[in-house]
Design a protein around this nucleic acid. Structure first.
Lengths: 209, 209, 209, 209
DNA sequence: CATGAATGAGCGTTCATTCAT
DNA sequence: CATGAATGAACGCTCATTCAT
């Protein structure tokens, strides 16, 4: 299923340490309140050294930003080449988010709190990643409509929003309350619920007309 | 259907002007980048005067915060007393968000970008509002399960996440791209799609086993 | 003879105080070593207030810069309209430098040490003022050549360099040693010596072929 | 005529390379903006190595400083032992500046921009070199007055200022505009003009009373 | 009510210098 | 000799907040 590793490669140890420290600090205080000195403290180095590895605070943030999207785009590329059922593809997307949250909760946290929404942090360049990703998910949905898995009378874009919205909100809830996913069982139950509702709906079949 | 007015009551004119200016400025620049002087400029007053009406920047933000939640809680209180079908109740929630976005796009924008996600702006007190609101929507879902509208085998909390996630993502998409809702027709189409998928699912009925 | 006042007009008191403090501080420590906090200390205010009156350190420096050149250009404009002998015109230039040095030694000091030479502080825009001023003095020299006061076989540009070089070096010597001009007598003696040598040369007439 | 070599003696190759790189870098960016790392880059070495050859940045600058003055004092010592006419002696001084500018424009540039004027870079120790040099030139002038070449009614110190000012301003003009001296012809024309004006003045003989 | 001058905590960033390898 | 990782003093600048007028 091609889980793409998110942990930075080709990066010196110190760089990784700073990267993780930044993630942790930004998670705790938010981008604006995260001082370079806080990040350095968390990394156990002097603040000057941060500038040895990263051009500035913005650059450090961009690195986090790219780190996140690279993993996600790698997944989407993987998925697009698969012949598997649409439901499987969507489940992979959900699980990717949850798996990453387990491996690197800070990264997902920062994505949810600082990347996903903040207009303050959103440059045009960054907004582009979003549209790109949305488009890739929409491609999967559209593929599902062509294969006859999904209703053709519903706007593919709308379906994409609904699907991703559900996933994101689960993540947000976990992030905001600092929850841990308790295990694969829970993870799968959540994923299955999303897929189930998205595919077959929440309504009780017996009550249908 | 009980649309609750969001425009502040019991507030002097100047106070309202500052409030709206703050909303507009925070929308444009984000909370941290929104200077008191920017807000004052937008309000057409001197920055010193802001402190006559609001204790400080935090207080101004809190006012926006409460403004948002008050409207939403009033809606939820209204809904809880109704006897209408669950689908109607949920649609009211959706339409409330969309109507507010039409009336006061800045407020919704700030909610999405600065309130809904930002851990930086999230104090424990503020987090409480979220849980409270989530709980109220969950009550509706649970009521639906008891009435037999919703499947009982799905976790009510999860269903709540899925539902609100869908709504929030539509709003986010509009907010991030600064879209206007083009009219009641589009608004209803979106609301119906969400309700439709949430209730009956996205799968093509003819392809079911 | 139209001495143009250099003291800033249309400027609030505080602005002038900061301006003078900047002059004094830059004189003492040089532009780069002159901290905003030093300037503020010299002005008896908090450093934050400097930014209330000037955009930044660069802007403060530019103000000094313009202050200097405005005075000088006003003088040159005045001179160009006069019918007086060339020697008088040149003497006015010399006296202007010396008078300004008496009135505002810090300004001349900063001109000599930070404006006149520093390539570090020289932007293209600033270089332009120099060429402009050089050109105006050259016009006077050229006028002198046409009137028959000066030899036509000598390059007017070269004569300008020689003349201004002499003046500037006198100023430099005073500036670097923090000398005061001891009175009008000394001032006139220096001016006359420059004019005398420039016009008739340093050689002993009796020894001429 | 005793051109003294300016290229450092008794210095390892690396030291010379760093020296030249410092000159070049300080010329381009000014002393304060010239980072040790810039100098190291220009020298093609690591910045740590600079500290192997020079105690610190100040020491590097002092070396340049001394380099410049050593050459000039060697020239003045040479001149003082000559029996040649005063005009020749002065011309040697002029040509020395111009020759050095041709050989080592960076050195002259740094002299003009960072040494000659900057109070910021002027320690008491450094100021001493200036007075010393001025004194040596003044000795030549005074010798000229005793020999009857120069008028005795003019202050020797003043004449020195005028002479050196003229020379320095020519250099400044070239330095600030990054001009090259186009050849020996131009160089001699400039030198002759300075000598000519200094000796016989700029006034048209025919118009004299 | 209203203004904006005044303050100073706070923070990003630069860069000379040291030193382990 | 040579490298560059590491340190931290220093400083420009922002901006929330106070308060005299």
């Amino acid at each position: 299923m091609g889980m793409t590793k998110l942990i930075p490669r080709n990066r010196t140890d110190k760089e990784s340490v700073i990267f993780e420290a930044a993630l942790k600090t930004i998670k705790q205080k938010g981008y604006h309140r995260a001082r370079i000195s806080d990040i350095a403290d968390a990394a156990g180095i002097s603040y000057g050294l941060v500038y040895h590895y990263f051009k500035n605070k913005e650059d450090l943030f961009d690195t986090i930003f790219k780190q996140w999207w690279e993993g996600l785009f790698a997944l989407m590329a993987d998925i697009s080449h698969q012949e598997s059922p649409i439901a499987d593809k969507l489940k992979q997307v959900i699980l990717y988010f949850f798996d990453t949250y387990k491996t690197d909760p800070e990264l997902v946290n920062v994505f949810i709190t600082e990347i996903s929404r903040s207009t303050a942090n959103l440059t045009t360049a960054r907004l582009h990643y979003f549209k790109e990703f949305m488009g890739l998910v929409e491609d999967v949905i559209r593929e599902g409509q062509q294969r006859g898995t999904f209703r053709k009378d519903l706007n593919a874009r709308y379906l994409t929003y609904i699907f991703l919205g559900a996933v994101e909100t689960f993540l947000s809830a976990m992030v905001l309350e600092d929850q841990k996913i308790k295990g694969d069982a829970q993870k799968n139950r959540i994923a299955d619920t999303i897929i189930e509702v998205f595919l077959r709906g929440a309504s009780d079949q017996r009550n249908r007309g």
